[in-house]
Every structure is written in structure tokens, then in C-alpha cells.
Write a protein that binds this DNA or RNA. Sequence first.
DNA 1: AAGTAAAATGATTTTATTTCAATAATTGAT
DNA 2: ATCAATTATTGAAATAAAATCATTTTACTT
Lengths: 297, 297
Amino acid sequence: MAILERIHLQVIREVERQGSLTAAAKVLYLTQSALSHTMKKLEQSIGTDVWLREGRSLRLTQAGQYLLGVANRLLPQLDQAEERLHQYAQGERGTLRIGMECHPCYQWLLKIVAPYLSQWPDVDVDVKQKFQFGGIGALFGYEIDLLVTPDPLFKPGLRFEPVFDYEQVLVVSRNHALATAEYIEPAQLSSEVLITYPVEIDRLDIYNQFLQPAGISPKRHKVIETTDIMLQMVASGRGVAALPRWLVEEYANEMGIVPVRLGHQGIGKQIFIGAREVDTHIDYLKAFIEIAHLSAP
Amino acid sequence: MAILERIHLQVIREVERQGSLTAAAKVLYLTQSALSHTMKKLEQSIGTDVWLREGRSLRLTQAGQYLLGVANRLLPQLDQAEERLHQYAQGERGTLRIGMECHPCYQWLLKIVAPYLSQWPDVDVDVKQKFQFGGIGALFGYEIDLLVTPDPLFKPGLRFEPVFDYEQVLVVSRNHALATAEYIEPAQLSSEVLITYPVEIDRLDIYNQFLQPAGISPKRHKVIETTDIMLQMVASGRGVAALPRWLVEEYANEMGIVPVRLGHQGIGKQIFIGAREVDTHIDYLKAFIEIAHLSAP
DNA sequence: AAGTAAAATGATTTTATTTCAATAATTGAT
DNA sequence: ATCAATTATTGAAATAAAATCATTTTACTT
């Protein structure tokens, strides 16, 4: 009845990764012959070829490409399941895989993780920041167990709750002309270099809530990966950035940076933490959310 | 290296479904002994029991429950993959699995499917209307390939586009007191029996956009599964319902029902069709969306 | 054309799975 | 309380599947 097995998916994945059956065999600790036999048998069972034999190389057929997609989707889930079983076996509770869709929150997360790890010695924590299909997709696809994000999604299957509010502010060097302003208007940024994280421009609050409505662009736009470097760039007067007020205030003294309100009202933001509904009963997951609540910056 | 195989998940799933290892063996066309050996070996490999042996019955351990979840999630995907491979083998293109989160759209869908099936003779169409984790979850979880919904989700990994606009109206019998009204106010429904589909009350437009803002409740609330019965109930004066105008107009003459605008402005709605971004290149999927566009009611 | 690298194939060996048969434990019924 | 029926476990034997080894075929390189 069942013909498609884990090994078939593994072979397809490894042939793509390694480039040849022979190389795939090495990675899988089997002989080239074994893989050839196994896959030939699969092809006979399903009645269609997985590869086009072009000379001595293999190119995926349409069916093969489909299978590669299945492999890339399902194999990681099987691996993760096995890993988790081993954790159960050792009395560990599992790994809490946290996804982050909020760059600066990383600093905040670090402060939560420390007490969490000591309260839950048998739970590991893993943080991921890159998702092919976005955080929501990663949650649905069982790549992560929790998602920290400013964009919640109230849909069946998922549960989001707010963990803290904050104000998104402009950071400038304390020597900067704008350092003493009570608040700034969009136009005042047209002569500034704006430093942001490398995300799509529409997801940057300072664009979609501040600059774009006013039709303003900064003089230049620089992209920096990490918060620390970003702040140093700002401190040295190379540009301005938009970050949470709590983050800026934390570094204000030591780094010589100053927060400035964006617009008269300021930009208000909220961070949510989301999980799959079916998981919400898991004690160590609930505990994390609770700690997150208590540790609002 | 890899120890968790498809058979293990199948056994766990079937033991839960059938109630015993013996019954599971029958379903899997194997002996009870074989399953016992197989699972014993798995338990040794992962180092933890899957079942608690209580008398002559098996109860899942924590690890076992976890595996059951994995099984219920992954086995259907493997089954679907095999099915699709067989379709490839027979020169068929596959099955387009369409999810519906819009009850009355079913009537509209029926009209699209006919021409689609004749244009794509090698593509099958399957329609699902119930999702454990909502349509979005079903899309992410590869349970369906397309989702017809009034609630799009513009997130990475998914792509939604509007297919048509319509007005949500009240349907009443032509003998009804409200039948000649140009439009009605919420208060006028407080003495009516309201018939709706069986969905959460918050997802009903007539509630969340009309009655609730005015703080009004209908005299009674009846739930009906199918559109046809619903219309017959309305025609026979047993109650009123809220449905798309195009649907009502289609049945107006033969059934003796009349559409009435909800509120002065009416309730405007939009239906979207969504797909996984990675699938948007598939020709027969694109074709369906195109036909859907052209067939706006 | 020779040499090399890759995949396929066939025969054999090895390993894993399945069945068979027997046992033990538990449940339900009389 | 006993008996019959049901269920799971276990060990040994039989069967089936998979892996290897040795060889062949193909096509790419120089």
C-alpha cells in the first residue's frame, strides 16, 4: 500500500544537494548501487521516473521536482520529531523554538531567556530569525513553536497575545541637530541618512507610518544587520535610525545617543507572542509566555 | 541514523483508531506480532516507550501522544504525495484542492468548476469546507491548494487576490412586511427569526457589521447548513437570512424571495482567492484563478 | 582513442521483517 | 471461581527486502 518512504525523500534531497547519486550515497552511508536500486524500485512502483537520465547526470522530472518539495517540507519535521523523542527519553521536556519577527526584540529576548532557562532546566531554547514563508508560515509549518512579532494574526489554529507596548522613536547622536527636538516631522528626515534593518521597506514602521504618508524620502538609506552596530553608526553621526524607546534609553548614556519622538503623537507599537492553539496547554510554553509578560521592558 | 519510519506512524495512528494492536494489524495487512516487534524496536531505538502497557491494552505515553500528533499531521501529506505521483504517472496533472470559507460561494463555485473541468481534462477538483485550523492553516498545511474566502491574509508565503465584489443583503419572503422596504435598520430585525450558516457568530457579517454595532439581537437565531434549505425556510416565512445579492436575485423568481439592503449604505463585501506563493506558477492553478475572475457573479 | 567518472545491472550476501507457534496476562461471562 | 476469549509479548524460523560487490554500460574529458 505505502510505497513512499523516508529514504526516497532523503535520496532525492541529497542528490540535489550533493549533485550526484554517488555523492549522495556517501552522505547517506550507503553505496551508489543501493540508492540506484532503491530509486529504481520507487520509480517502478509509482509508474513514473523521478529523474531524467541525461548522460551520466540526473535531472529531476516534474514528478521529481514535486517530490523534492515534499522532501524539503517533511524531512525536517521527521528529524525534529526524532530529536524531540530523544529529549523525552532523557527526561528533557523538549526544545522551545522561538521565531522573531522583530529585530530589536532580540535584546529583550536575551533577558527573558536567562531566567527561563534556569526555571526550566530541562527545556532548551532555540531562536530563529529567518523564515522562508514568514513567521506565520513557520508557525503553521512546525518550524517554530512561538513567534514574537508586531503583526499578530487572529485566525483559528493560532493564538496571539500582546506582551508589551512601546514607542518607536528616532535615535540620533547627542550632538545631532535634532537631539534636542521634542519631536520631529517627516520633512526633517529628508536630509538625513536613515539606517534600518534589512527587511522589506513596507514592514518598516518609520516608512509605512511616518515617511510614506508624508511622501518624504530620506537622503540615503543604509542597511545594517545588527542592533549594536546600528547604534554605533548612529552614535558616530553617520545616520539616524528608528528603534524602540526602551532600547534607546538603555544605551543612551553609555553610547551617547538620544531618542526623539516621531511626529507629534509618536508611533505606538505593540509586540505579540503567538503559538499554535493545539500547543497552548504545554506547560513550559505557557511558562515562557508568562515570563515574557512579566519582563516587559 | 534515521529511525522513525512511516510504518511507525501508521501503527500509532491505527492503534488509536482501531483500539488495539490486533485490530491495527488487520487494517495494515500484517500480523499483530509484526507490529509488536516493529514498535518494540522503535521504542528501543528512541529509548522511551510509546505505550504504557496497562493490562492487555495500550495507552499512549507522553512521547506516544506526541508521535500521534506527528502521525496525524504527516501521514496525510505522504498519502497525498503518493496520490499525486500516481496522477503524474497517468499523465494527469493533479488534483486542485479548493477550500471554501464562504458558504454561499459554493453556488458560484459550481458554475466555475464545470468549464474548468472541461478546459483541464487532466486536472481533478476537490472542494473542502471544514478545516480544523481554518482555511489559512489548511493552506499552510498543504491540505488545500486554493482558498476562497472573504478574509484574505497578506503575509509572506501566501498570495491573495480579489475575485469579485458583492453586496450582502437581507433575504425575505415576498409576502414579508419588509419585502418592499428600500433598506432596513438593525432595530427592524429585533422581532425577526434570523437564519444563518453554522459558523462562529463573529464571522457573520450581519452580526459584526450590522446588529452588534447597534446592540440589537434578533428574536431568534436558527442555524441551517445548506443554502437551498435556508432559502426555502425564508420563502416559507420561517425567518430571514443574510446572503449575497447575486445569489438572492438568481433564486428570486422561482422561490418567491426578495433582497433588501442592509442599512442605508448596504454591506459591501469582497471575495478573495488565495494560494501558496510557491504554487503560483502552476499553470492549472493560475488558470483556475483566471476563470474565477471572469466568472464574477 | 584512452581514460575517467557516473549510473545501471545482476548475483550474492547480509540484514531486516514477517510469520508461526507458544506463552503469559487480562478481561468478561457463566 | 473458573473458563473461554482476547490481547500482547517473545523466540525461532521463514521470508522478503535491502545492501554490497563485481561488472557493465554510457557519456564526458583530454
